[in-house]
Design a protein around this nucleic acid. Structure first.
Length: 782
DNA sequence: GAGTTTGAAACT
DNA sequence: CAGTTTCAAACTC
């Protein structure tokens, strides 16, 4: 395949870029000798990237079809022809659509055959065969309509592009020196599972092959079938991401009209491993840079004919947008997980996550996906289509996990779990696969790590979680059209946009979901044949009432004792914290999934009274933790704000000007406060010491039991302490006394006498231990 | 554990 | 918005 000069690549026209599939492929040396020859080694010096450098620690290979040995990355970018998704020009968007691996004709093999063979020197453009060739003033080239024919690639000579008039269209451009090609596949729906290259003839497909990768280490991305609507990709920063690395942008022309920018991942500078995510402006792929990190194979497969997307659309002009297309993993697929880059360094960044689902019934389980987004200005719109998946979206700051509820009977076209995927099995997975288009506009909290749950394939057989017996993960998507809470203040348990769209979103407590995730992971890891996922990342969450959500999640939740409020008012701490009552002592509790409707109403009522009722009361001050203050201030009158009645004191913060307290003693210079703090510190130290001592003792005892277990077994199962009977103790003492007397008789110094006694004591112990396993009545003989 | 105190939440 | 009531946690005994 011919390669277009790098300059041309960045000037790709919109119509060219209106493709839905981009296939990047590592050129195997055998197939594309020229490509490999031109391509620089992966260890080459990083090419300075104008775009944000993003650390991509890993690239997830999700292609189920591709053999593990094949170095291929499939990236499907779906770009609608109208390309109206880009909210802002500055927004970096990557349109990714999941591809169906099984059904997609563009398998790795196919992509390799059709695209990988041809490489030319940068700048050179050669069009070998007839087809649509277009070189506009904007340096746009459409090489061909190439039909992927079996074995065509193998016969191709380097530097030539096999273009068959089969109707597929390829656009090949070269940016950089590697000469790697990216195949942009136009949307097509006729493919069937297992269809190979020959299938392409029956179902002509348009491909646009773009070689944009300047880096040799980049691995081709194979993109399956494009999904219907366009997706937006936001650049994710400050987070290790498993993203798709497309290419490397070798140069940035400030003067020239840069239309196509693909940045794969944009990381914070502090990150070591970085990957730049291709910045795509609505159907425009500019470049992809991965200067630092070595790209890893990503195979995205299993594209849905229908849109299986989770789109987070910006309400605010996002600076960057990252779209992650995640295909459901096929068993035996080498790739495991896709970490969604959800931490963004800049507010206004957007995340669009596309989740592909398996159309093949052979793939009953859909990968679940968790989207964590941060931002106090969280605003989310969840247009959800019917699907049998649940999507979990954690919004730090809001303290709620938003779980999309889905009915299990929907989406036959999307290839959802159907009978294979039961509710229980879905419950087993903390993450939810969203096959419908979901557009969220979420301001991302900068520099916030997140816990990501890697989509983990489930076995065909349903899996049940046994550790979460008290909670029911799958919530019925009960239509509650009357409730449309502002997501900024979204309360717990709210069902979002149910009804017509069957977009059942229920807000689950953060700890609730976290527990589910953890348990699900354990269960899945143990039960599934796949390796244990390594994509879980700890996440620092937004403060929750002065405490980070992680801390809040880790701390033992205090059970409530509500009696009259039904746990549906803010009197209930569980409810106020956005948590379901669990192991509480409350009576007539409605703060559970069984009373979803009532709970939702209560939430709405609370929000009506106070739109910020569920927001953390302890906000973060200007200068960090020391400036934490109560948002409303306390109103204490009798406690002096030195008891836990006072919310400020309880949060371990001092009262501020916002407080209306009387007789406040909770201020910096207050002697009472200092005294209390000292006492509290001392008490805490004592508690810690006691705890440590207990822990140590327990450990020692446990260790003792462990080490003596063989002796116990050999000795007839007697416990060690049973050997030290009264008689043994008396005998030991006699031995020691005898030793002391002997030392005294020989007129040894005291130190020597003590040593002799201790040595004798040691011998006694040894005899006790040695005799313990031999006889039931150990004897001590001095 | 029962009773009291306290202040936030809810209500008027 | 202010006053009152309700409520559950914190506290005391």
């Amino acid at each position: 395949m011919d390669v277009v000069s790098p300059e041309l690549n960045i000037l790709l026209p919109d119509e060219i870029m209106d493709t839905e599939a981009i296939v990047m492929d590592d050129d195997p040396p055998a197939e594309s000798p020229t490509a490999s020859g031109q391509s620089q080694p992966s260890d080459d010096a990083p090419i300075p990237m104008e775009t944000d450098v993003l650390a991509v620690p890993e690239i997830v290979s999700l292609c189920s079809d591709a053999p593990p040995t094949q170095r291929t990355q499939a990236l499907t970018t779906s770009i609608t022809t109208d390309s109206t998704l880009c909210s802002t020009t500055s927004a970096t968007q990557l349109l990714l659509t999941p591809s169906i691996a099984s059904s997609s004709p563009l398998t790795l093999r196919t992509a390799t055959a059709s695209t990988l063979t041809s490489t030319t020197s940068p700048g050179g453009v050669s069009l070998t065969s007839g087809g649509l060739q277009k070189l506009s003033a904007s340096h746009q080239i459409i090489l061909n309509k190439v039909a992927s024919s079996p074995g065509a690639d193998t016969t191709r000579s380097p530097g030539t592009t096999t273009i068959t008039p089969g109707g597929q269209k390829f656009m090949v451009t070269a940016i950089g020196k590697s000469g790697q090609s990216i195949v942009l596949q136009l949307p097509h729906t006729g493919s069937k599972p297992g269809s190979g290259q020959g299938e392409a003839k029956a179902h002509p497909q348009h491909f646009k092959v773009l070689t944009i990768g300047g880096r040799t280490d980049l691995k081709p991305v194979m993109v399956g079938q494009a999904v219907s609507s366009a997706s937006q990709v936001s650049t994710l920063q400050a987070q290790q991401l498993k993203t798709v690395q497309i290419a490397k942008k070798t140069q940035v022309s400030s003067a020239g009209p840069i239309k196509f920018i693909i940045t794969k991942a944009v990381n914070n500078k502090g990150l070591t491993a970085q990957t730049s995510v291709s910045n795509v402006i609505t159907g425009r792929v500019l470049s992809t840079s991965s200067p630092v990190t070595s790209p890893r194979t990503i195979t995205l497969s299993e594209t849905l004919s229908s849109s299986n997307k989770i789109a987070i659309s910006p309400l605010k002009s996002p600076s960057k947008l990252t779209v992650v297309s995640v295909a459901s993993q096929v068993p035996n697929s080498p790739q495991k997980s896709v970490s969604l880059p959800l931490n963004m360094a800049h507010l206004g960044q957007q995340i669009l996550v596309q989740q592909s689902t398996a159309t093949s019934p052979a793939k009953p389980m859909k990968p679940v996906q968790t989207v964590t987004v941060g931002g106090p200005q969280f605003k989310t719109i969840f247009p959800l289509s019917t699907s049998s998946n649940v999507q979990q979206i954690q919004v730090p700051g809001s303290r709620f996990h938003y779980v999309r509820l889905v009915t299990a009977t929907t989406g036959s076209s999307t290839g959802q779990a159907g009978s294979h995927c039961t509710n229980s099995s879905m419950t087993a997975k903390p993450m939810v696969v969203n096959t419908a288009q979901v557009r969220m506009s979420v301001p991302i909290i900068p520099a916030q790590t997140m816990k990501q749950v890697v989509p983990k394939p489930l076995t065909s057989s349903g899996q049940l979680l046994t550790t979460q017996t008290q909670q029911r993960l799958i919530m019925p998507a009960t239509p509650l059209p009357q409730i449309q809470p502002n997501l900024t203040n979204l309360p717990p348990g709210t069902v979002l946009a149910p009804g017509s769209g069957n977009m059942g979103y229920a807000v689950l407590p953060a700890h609730y979901v976290t527990q589910l995730q953890q348990s699900a992971y354990v269960t899945l890891a143990s039960s599934s044949g796949f390796p244990t996922p390594t994509g879980i990342q700890t996440q620092a969450r937004l403060p929750l009432n002065g405490l980070s959500t992680s801390d809040a999640a880790s701390r033992p939740r205090k059970p409530c004792n509500c009696n009259k409020s039904q746990c549906l008012k803010l009197y209930c701490d569980c409810f106020a914290n956005g948590e379901f009552c669990q192991n509480c002592n409350c009576t007539n509790c409605f703060n559970n999934l069984e009373h979803e409707t009532e709970r939702a109403k209560a939430i709405k009522a609370c929000l009506d009274r106070n739109p910020e009722a569920f927001k953390p009361k302890i906000g973060k001050g200007k200068e960090g933790e020391s400036d934490r203050r109560h948002s409303k201030g306390c109103n204490c009158k009798r406690s002096g704000c030195l008891k836990n009645y006072c919310e400020c004191y309880e949060a371990k913060i001092m009262c501020s000007s916002t407080c209306k307290c009387v007789g406040c003693k909770n201020f910096e210079e207050s002697p009472e406060r200092k005294t209390l703090m000292h006492l509290a510190d001392a008490a805490e130290v004592r508690v810690q010491q006691q705890t440590a001592a207990k822990t140590k003792l327990s450990s020692q005892i446990s260790d003792l039991f462990t080490r003596t277990t063989p002796a116990i077994t050999s000795g007839g199962g007697r416990m060690p302490f049973t050997f030290v009977t009264k008689e043994v103790a008396e005998a030991t003492c006699e031995c020691l006394l005898e030793q002391a007397e002997q030392a005294e008789l020989i007129q040894q110094p005291q130190a020597t006498a003590e040593r002799m006694i201790l040595e004798e004591f040691g011998r006694c112990l040894m005899r006790i231990i040695s005799s313990a396993g031999k006889t039931d009545c150990p004897s001590i003989n001095c």
